[in-house]
Design a protein around this nucleic acid. Structure first.
Lengths: 131, 131
DNA sequence: TTAATAATAGTAATTGTTACTATTATTAAT
DNA sequence: ATTAATAATAGTAACAATTACTATTATTAA
């Protein structure tokens, strides 16, 4: 745990927003002015690989990071791009009006993406090794 | 409808995959060798704004395009990045085994993102105009 | 057929991210 | 403390996907 890594983690954990790498960079720079953007990226990657933070690979062109690793869903503003938390149990069955009351968000769309291993790749896995 | 636009649409509709812009570019180039990548991007944007095709802004660094605009969900292979369709009704309540049977995909994760307008932006909307 | 408009090809610029490299910090053994 | 080995850093350059720019070409309307 270098000073840089610790400060990045500290600052991320202070936020309940879900900052992008450059937002974290700007915040951390107030404490470590000479830190480089590459260091921020490298440590965010490192911390998320360790399971200490979460990397949010949602839609949108930028990655976002979450200091809290408990499982919950997210809601993104289609105007400003801001991402907020939803309680974990807030799923597709809840109606928009409830969400509006609880989060202040007017829900426009719900996006679901499943991730898995496709038939081809599963075959490859079988061939290569027991991986 | 220019020739370029028509060919892009034709080729996209031939596919049940969800190609990226550069994949479409490579395919269309076989029919219009001098087409430029910018034209492909511009027309994909145009066609999706018209509601003729769908732009899939899922996770991952590249946009993908879908020639079929009926609402359905998608499943992405975490190894090769390929994106396939899921029947519209294939939702979070279905169990992994069913999905495996129907799609051949081994499901690893389900990602849900809500999109909406955040409280701040809703205030702004009120102030600006009736937009 | 000529002017006005729109779309194109090709290139350059932008943006988010990753890779590279010389330097600096950290650690472990003496 | 001193040294050698390792790891992380700052700063810069490279990269990839996308968008913007511009001169040229196609299309349309009169």
């Amino acid at each position: 745990m270098t000073q840089q890594r610790q400060v990045i983690l500290d600052e991320l954990r202070k936020l309940d927003s879900h900052p992008t790498a450059d937002e974290i960079y700007e915040i951390v720079r107030r404490r470590i002015p000479r830190i480089s953007l590459g260091t921020v990226y490298r440590n965010l990657e490192f911390l998320s690989r360790c399971g200490i933070i979460r990397k949010l690979e949602l839609s949108g062109s930028q990655m976002r990071f979450d200091g809290f690793i408990d499982r919950h869903n997210h809601i993104r503003c289609i105007r400003c791009g801001r991402v907020d938390d939803l309680p974990a149990e807030q799923l597709l069955t809840e109606c928009d009006r409830d969400l509006l009351k609880e989060t202040g968000y007017k829900v426009i769309e719900r996006r679901v993406e499943f991730l898995g291993v496709c038939p081809n790749c599963r075959e490859d896995e079988g061939t290569e090794s027991a991986g």
